[in-house]
């Protein structure tokens, strides 16, 4: 289990790069890397040389999240002005612009079948589910608000939904919030199943294990990566090592490892059998906002790839084996 640096593009964007996602391969092209930045652009890159395919403009106030449809044909990007732009990957034609005021837009993820786009709704304390055919809201999954919020509490610990993750079978949806709680929903019944405890600081990133739909990984500002049993509501384990916030977590397609990106400027690879960090990449010199494993599939693409993006404006690609 090893990461090896392949390519790094300095100044890939004009400003901090905040989001990254892989667009799955289609029949006529391999998978692409999608990145979003404070410079208000979304860029598409072709592995392994990280050739710039296109630069999409049109957002304002910085792109905070990007997501790709499992078909690889469409993708979505969202910015701090709370617009979600859905576009055709190959033509950059705008398919839809989503907005549901007053809800903000944070993390986004397409349902594994591709029929629904889940969007973390910030202070609305909810996750909006958009139908990917009609681009209308299918339903709103709300998380419970605390009974008596403290009047003096000025910032963080309100129910503010930051991150979302679909289970690989599409039956469960987890969302993480600023106060560290993680809510797990039964999507079919639009019902909150339970809250997972363990963090008390913002949970900025969530991912289900691709091989075990019960296992959910969460990265938090407390510097820990927690491993939950999403069905059994228990904390399975906790992994520490990052010296600052864990900003992003992604699971390798084989399910044997997870990668994390942190404010401590490092990317770490964790062996899930040993439950310990086996490698630390320190090629970035500022916060690593996102890490993403390339999904398997496409023509002749077997090799595992991991991408990381950072406040240092760079995009890095690693070989994962």
């Amino acid at each position: 289990m090893k990461l090896a640096g392949l390519k790094s593009i300095e100044n890939a964007h004009e400003d901090s790069v905040w989001a990254a996602a892989w667009v799955p391969a289609t029949e006529d092209r391999p998978s692409l890397l999608l990145t979003g930045s404070l410079d208000e652009t979304v860029k598409l890159w072709r592995a392994d040389e990280l050739d710039l395919v296109r630069t999409n403009t049109g957002h304002s106030l910085g792109v905070a999240a990007v997501a790709a449809h499992p078909s690889g044909i469409i993708a979505a990007s969202s910015s701090l002005d709370s617009f979600v732009r859905v576009f055709d990957v190959d033509t950059n034609a705008t398919i839809a612009v989503l907005e549901s005021p007053p809800s903000e837009v944070w993390g986004m993820q397409f349902e594994p079948m591709g029929t629904v786009l889940a969007v973390a709704g910030g202070s609305s304390a909810s996750v909006k589910l958009w139908d990917t055919a009609s681009w209308r809201i299918l339903s709103t999954l709300s998380i419970p608000r605390p009974e008596a919020p403290k009047p003096s509490d000025k910032t963080s610990s309100k129910k503010f939904v930051l991150s979302v993750a679909w289970s690989p079978n599409g039956k469960r949806l987890a969302c993480g919030s600023m106060d560290g709680t993680i809510c797990v929903f039964d999507v079919e019944r639009s019902k909150l199943l339970h809250q997972l405890e363990g963090h008390n600081m913002p949970v900025r990133s969530l991912v289900f294990s691709p091989v075990d739909p019960r296992v959910l990984f969460s990265g938090s500002d407390d510097g820990h990566v927690n491993m939950h049993d999403a069905e059994g509501k228990t904390l399975v384990g906790s992994m520490s090592g990052h010296t600052s916030w864990v900003l992003s977590v992604d699971a390798s397609p084989d399910g044997g490892a997870i990668a994390t990106g942190s404010s401590d400027r490092t990317v770490r690879l964790w062996d899930l059998k040993m439950r310990a960090a086996v490698q630390t990449m320190s090629n970035h010199n500022d916060q690593v906002w996102s890490v993403a494993f390339r999904p398997p599939g496409g023509t002749g693409v077997r090799a595992g790839r991991l991408a990381s993006v950072s406040d240092d404006k760079s995009v890095s690609l690693y070989d994962y084996s």
Partner: peptide
């Protein structure tokens, strides 16, 4: 503006930053 955007990105739930922005 950029600084405030960064702040919002770090602490999305703090609306002061948005107001200031």
């Amino acid at each position: 503006k950029k600084t405030l955007l960064r702040a919002i990105h770090l602490t999305p739930s703090n609306y002061t930053f948005r107001f200031d922005l």
